[in-house]
Deep mutational scan, measured.
Amino acid sequence: MVQRGSKVRILRPESYWFQDVGTVASVDQSGIKYPVIVRFEKVNYSGINTNNFAEDELVEVEA
Rank of each mutant, 00 (worst) to 15 (best):
M1I: 11
M1W: 15
M1E: 08
V2I: 15
V2D: 05
V2G: 03
Q3G: 09
Q3C: 12
Q3W: 00
Q3H: 11
Q3A: 11
R4V: 15
R4S: 11
R4K: 13
R4D: 06
G5F: 00
G5V: 02
G5Q: 02
S6K: 08
S6T: 12
S6E: 04
K7T: 09
K7S: 06
K7G: 03
K7V: 10
K7Q: 08
V8D: 07
V8G: 02
V8N: 01
V8C: 07
V8T: 02
V8K: 04
R9H: 02
R9D: 02
I10K: 01
I10F: 01
I10L: 04
I10H: 03
I10A: 01
I10V: 13
I10M: 01
L11S: 04
L11F: 02
L11Q: 06
L11K: 05
L11C: 11
L11H: 03
R12S: 08
R12D: 09
R12H: 04
R12E: 04
P13E: 13
P13A: 12
P13N: 06
S15D: 07
Y16C: 10
Y16R: 03
Y16H: 07
W17T: 00
W17A: 00
W17C: 06
W17K: 00
F18V: 03
F18S: 04
F18Q: 04
Q19L: 14
Q19M: 15
Q19K: 07
D20C: 13
D20M: 13
D20T: 09
V21Q: 02
V21Y: 06
V21R: 00
G22H: 02
G22S: 02
G22E: 02
G22P: 02
G22F: 06
T23W: 09
T23N: 04
T23K: 03
T23C: 12
V24T: 02
V24A: 02
V24H: 01
V24F: 00
V24W: 00
V24M: 02
V24D: 01
A25S: 10
A25Q: 14
A25M: 15
A25P: 00
S26Y: 14
S26Q: 10
S26K: 11
S26R: 11
S26V: 07
V27N: 04
V27D: 01
D28P: 04
D28S: 10
D28C: 12
D28H: 06
D28A: 09
Q29G: 11
Q29K: 13
Q29V: 11
Q29H: 13
Q29E: 11
Q29T: 14
Q29A: 11
S30V: 04
S30D: 05
G31M: 10
G31R: 08
G31N: 15
G31T: 07
I32T: 13
K33C: 10
K33H: 07
K33R: 13
K33N: 08
K33T: 09
K33I: 08
K33W: 05
Y34F: 11
Y34W: 10
Y34L: 08
Y34S: 05
Y34A: 06
Y34E: 05
P35L: 10
P35D: 06
P35W: 10
P35M: 10
P35H: 08
V36W: 05
V36P: 01
V36H: 01
V36L: 04
I37A: 12
I37E: 14
I37S: 13
I37D: 05
I37T: 15
I37C: 15
I37N: 12
V38Y: 00
V38K: 01
V38F: 00
V38M: 00
V38G: 00
V38T: 00
V38I: 03
R39G: 04
R39H: 11
R39F: 12
F40G: 03
F40W: 00
F40S: 01
F40M: 01
E41N: 08
E41G: 06
E41R: 05
E41A: 09
E41K: 06
K42P: 01
K42L: 06
K42Y: 08
V43W: 09
N44T: 06
N44H: 12
N44I: 04
N44A: 05
N44G: 05
N44E: 07
Y45Q: 15
Y45N: 15
Y45D: 15
S46Q: 15
S46W: 14
S46L: 15
G47I: 01
G47T: 02
G47E: 06
I48R: 07
I48T: 12
N49R: 05
N49I: 06
T50V: 13
T50I: 12
N51V: 11
N51S: 15
N51F: 10
N51M: 15
F53M: 02
F53R: 00
F53A: 00
F53Y: 06
A54P: 01
E55W: 15
E55Y: 15
E55Q: 12
E55H: 15
D56K: 06
D56E: 12
E57Q: 02
E57T: 03
E57A: 02
E57G: 03
E57I: 01
L58P: 01
L58Q: 00
L58F: 05
V59M: 13
V59Y: 08
V59D: 09
E60S: 10
E60I: 15
E60P: 13
E60L: 15
E60W: 10
E60V: 15
E60H: 09
V61Y: 06
V61E: 06
V61K: 02
E62V: 11
E62I: 10
E62R: 11
E62S: 12
E62L: 10
A63W: 11
A63F: 12
A63Q: 13
A63D: 13
A63H: 12
